[in-house]
């Protein structure tokens, strides 16, 4: 049942056109942050307003939408966004990665390999990868224009000099198509290799910061590193207690007062689609 009184997808057509024009430029400029006139949405900044506006601008009646929050389909943010789009567009929703044509995500990339018919929409809190190193927007814009990313290399170098390794475990900066430094949104560094030459189109929306950017399919995305300190995706050295996976990204759970730790898959659909562990194997 589509909610009466709203345009298809909640946004008005002028807003959609403005976002669509920005999206086309973002695709032509892989990794470059295109400013757009972010609208006030019926939920606060920080809850995925950028991703929602992008999804609303691309979604059509034939689409199947999946929304994940940290890999899970059943958290408050994911459930409310999925319900929102079901109400304002009437589209089918799913929790299965393979069935979705649009996947809106907060801070994870699904474990399953995405296909050419899919679009991955990221919710981005801070699109500027250099903002902790250079707070002036005018200055970072110039650094992007000149591809002057020495500052980020110095930051990684200082990490290695002080701690012996790069200490960034999420939101790990990447170079897109050897030109633009890009924040992959706060996905774990574990997910960074999945961005590289992904067959699906990837769109990134930051509502509060009013920027969107894109990585076209099959575009090289390289995590910044050094020859003698190559990038290493980090994963907890454990198996999921539900499905036994030793390949997926894991969430850590403290299950009792004694501090007993369990690990479970962050991607709930991946975990649920695997056969459960046998009693004797556990």
């Amino acid at each position: 049942m589509i909610e009466q009184g709203y345009n298809f997808g909640y946004l008005d057509e002028n807003t959609k056109r403005m976002i669509r024009r920005a999206l086309l430029k973002a695709v032509a400029l892989p990794g470059y942050q295109v400013p757009f006139g972010s609208r006030e949405m019926p939920l606060p900044y920080g809850w995925g307003t950028g991703g929602i506006q992008l999804t609303a601008s691309v979604i059509g009646p034939d689409d199947t939408l999946k929304v994940i929050d940290q890999g899970a389909d059943d958290t408050t943010n994911a459930v409310s966004i999925r319900r929102f789009f079901h109400r304002v567009t009437g589209v089918a929703t799913t929790e299965r990665t393979a069935e979705a044509t649009i996947i809106q995500t907060r801070h994870r990339v699904p474990e399953a390999t995405l296909g050419e018919h899919q679009i991955l929409v990221y919710q981005v809190p801070m699109p500027e990868p250099l903002f902790r190193l250079e707070p002036r927007v005018a200055e970072t814009r110039r650094m992007h224009a000149l591809a002057d990313y020495g500052l980020m290399h110095v930051k990684l170098y200082e990490d290695i000099a002080r701690h012996g390794a790069v200490t960034t475990s999420y939101n790990y900066p990447v170079m897109v198509n050897q030109r633009y430094l890009m924040s992959p949104s706060p996905i774990p560094a574990f997910d960074n290799p999945k961005l590289d030459r992904m067959p699906a189109l990837q769109l990134f929306g930051a509502g509060r910061e009013k920027r969107l950017y894109a990585v076209p399919p099959y575009t090289p995305v390289r995590s910044l590193d050094f020859e003698d300190h190559p990038f290493v995706p980090v994963r907890a050295d454990a198996a999921c207690v539900i499905c036994g996976s030793r390949a997926s990204y894991l969430d850590e759970l403290i299950v009792d007062d004694g501090g007993t730790r369990h690990f479970v898959c962050s991607d709930t659909d991946y975990c649920a689609s695997r056969p459960p562990l046998q009693e004797d194997a556990a």
Binding site: E13, V27, A28, V58, P217
Partner: peptide, 16 residues
């Protein structure tokens, strides 16, 4: 509304 959405998706895919 829906025709421009369908056309946009075609253009977006063509640009991608």
């Amino acid at each position: 509304v829906l025709d421009s959405q369908r056309c946009f998706r075609a253009v977006l895919d063509a640009m991608s």
